[in-house]
Computed example of a mutant assay.
Amino acid sequence: MKILILYLSFLTSFFGNDNPELTINVQNIKSLKGEIIIGVFNTDKDFLKDGVAIKNYKIAVDKGTETIVIKDLPKGDYAISLYHDENSDNECNRNFLGIPKEGYGFSNNVKPKFSAPSYKDCKFTLVENKVLDIVLLH
């Protein structure tokens, strides 16, 4: 019996999920409706382009700060973009200049000035459990 338990422990540690947890706290939510839409990127190629994020997540909004714990990302380098889809139309609504009309944010709390931020500016390394506090820009 002891051998079986040791064998199962070995298999669990060898084949178990070794992914660190990424906790994202989204702050400065102005409206208590809609969802926070999160895109995860792992390369600068096509960073921030629609439909190319390696993972997407949604959080229903019901308070001024929302949290998600992501457990399915392997160790590596990533960048996060997110927006508050207040009207639940599954797109980041923009004005005629292309500036988001809904709250938005990026990992490292990058604040774009004249253009979208680069992957390099937003990049972080996930090798152990990590907490990101991202403040929405309006």
Rank of each mutant, 00 (worst) to 15 (best):
T65L: 01
V52T: 15
K55V: 09
A60Q: 12
K45N: 11
V61G: 03
K55M: 11
K49Q: 10
F47H: 06
I59D: 01
A60C: 00
Y57F: 12
I54M: 01
D62V: 05
V69R: 12
T43E: 10
K58A: 09
T43F: 14
N42M: 11
K58I: 10
K55F: 05
T67E: 13
I70P: 04
D44P: 12
Y57A: 04
D46H: 11
N56D: 08
L48E: 02
A60M: 09
K71L: 05
K55L: 07
K49L: 11
I70L: 08
I68F: 13
G51F: 00
A53Y: 01
D44E: 13
D46T: 15
K58Y: 04
A60S: 11
K71R: 11
D46S: 11
A53R: 11
K58C: 03
Y57E: 09
D46R: 10
G51D: 05
L48V: 01
T65A: 01
F47S: 04
E66P: 06
K58H: 05
F47T: 01
K49D: 02
D44Q: 13
K55Y: 04
Y57K: 03
K49N: 10
T43M: 03
F47Q: 04
D44N: 13
D44A: 14
V61Y: 10
A53K: 06
V69Q: 03
A53T: 14
E66L: 07
L48R: 08
D62H: 12
A60T: 10
D44W: 04
G64K: 11
I70M: 05
T65V: 09
A60N: 13
N42Q: 08
V69F: 01
I68R: 07
I70E: 07
D50I: 13
F47Y: 13
K49E: 08
T65I: 12
T65R: 05
T67L: 00
K49F: 04
N42W: 07
D46A: 12
K55Q: 14
D46Q: 14
V69I: 15
D62F: 12
K71T: 15
K58L: 03
V61F: 02
T65F: 02
N42Y: 08
K45Q: 08
D50R: 14
K58R: 15
I59S: 00
I59W: 01
D62R: 12
T67A: 00
L48C: 01
T67I: 14
K45I: 08
K55E: 09
K63Q: 06
K63C: 00
G51C: 07
N42L: 11
L48T: 09
F47K: 02
K71N: 15
D50Y: 03
Y57W: 10
Y57N: 14
Y57P: 03
D44Y: 06
D50L: 11
I68Q: 06
L48H: 02
V69M: 13
D50W: 04
K71D: 09
I54R: 00
D62P: 07
A53V: 11
Y57Q: 06
E66V: 14
V61L: 00
D44S: 12
I70S: 02
I59L: 06
K55I: 13
N42T: 10
E66A: 05
V69W: 02
D44T: 10
K63V: 03
V52M: 07
T67Y: 02
K55H: 15
T43S: 15
I59Y: 00
Y57M: 07
K63T: 08
K63A: 00
